[in-house]
Design a protein around this nucleic acid. Structure first.
Lengths: 128, 128
DNA sequence: AAATATATACGAAGGATTTCGTAGTTGCAA
DNA sequence: TTGCAACTACGAAATCCTTCGTATATATTT
């Protein structure tokens, strides 16, 4: 599966959060969320290309086509994360996490949540 | 400060690990490390553009110019991380970390190291 | 000194991504 | 039915990034 570009990812995020949607719906959403306006045909073209690439499915039975994401958000995030870790942290997930948590930007709640996750992962390890 | 592209980042990683270096040295390093060969003038051009952008300093006193990274690795990683978290995880560092640690790819040692970091961060919190 | 190797500079091509205008079609309302 | 609104299709420009060829200058070797 091809990795989505930045623009494609913005569209996928709408489809993941809202479910299957028309170009109009996606474009409205992007313009509500984003800083700078996106033209309708720009979004249309991108979504058509995404359909060609197999990133989205397209239901053309109605006049307004309905698009839906093919790959799940989690799967896609994992792929993008792997690539990012490779290019920026030499493949070290630990370095990435250290950098993400360091610098005083993480709140106590975030830290606690991550600690809980780690402890549950450690428990899993012992089970097997 | 502008974010480096993929190609620029590959060069910066050489400069960070080896210190100030000539185009020749960087290009050799890239060709030793990477999978596919990179032409000398390709590296040269990229490094010239990086100098124009202010990503690297250039000492032109000798015939072979010596380049050095302007921004530190940590600072640059933080910037790239912020951008990545925004585009891929909607700005949630926690989601990023959960995704990085989930999926059974993290070893017990990695988890332990990250847990230690979190605990030291939590201690810092209580100090203030 | 001449030939060879190595440097920088730079234009330009190629590919990927994004953006937009315009043409043509279909549904709906006056 | 006529006209307006909304949709798809598509070509093409604009931008960014990468790659490379070539011109030119400078060192090094023979």
């Amino acid at each position: 599966m091809l990795a989505p570009t930045e623009g494609e990812l913005a569209i996928l995020r709408v489809l993941w959060s809202d479910g299957p949607a028309t170009v109009r719906a996606v474009n409205d959403r992007l313009n509500k969320t984003s800083d700078k306006p996106v033209g309708y045909t720009t979004t249309l073209k991108l979504m058509q290309l995404m359909a060609d690439k197999g990133l989205v499915d397209r239901d053309t039975s109605a006049r307004s086509h309905v698009y839906s994401a093919v790959a799940g958000q989690e799967h896609t995030q994992r792929g993008l994360l792997r690539r990012f870790v490779d290019s920026t942290f030499g493949g070290s997930r630990t370095q990435l996490v250290l950098r993400a948590l360091g610098g005083g930007e993480a709140s106590a709640e975030e830290l606690a949540e991550i600690k809980r996750l780690i402890e549950s992962l450690e428990k899993e390890d012992h089970h097997d």
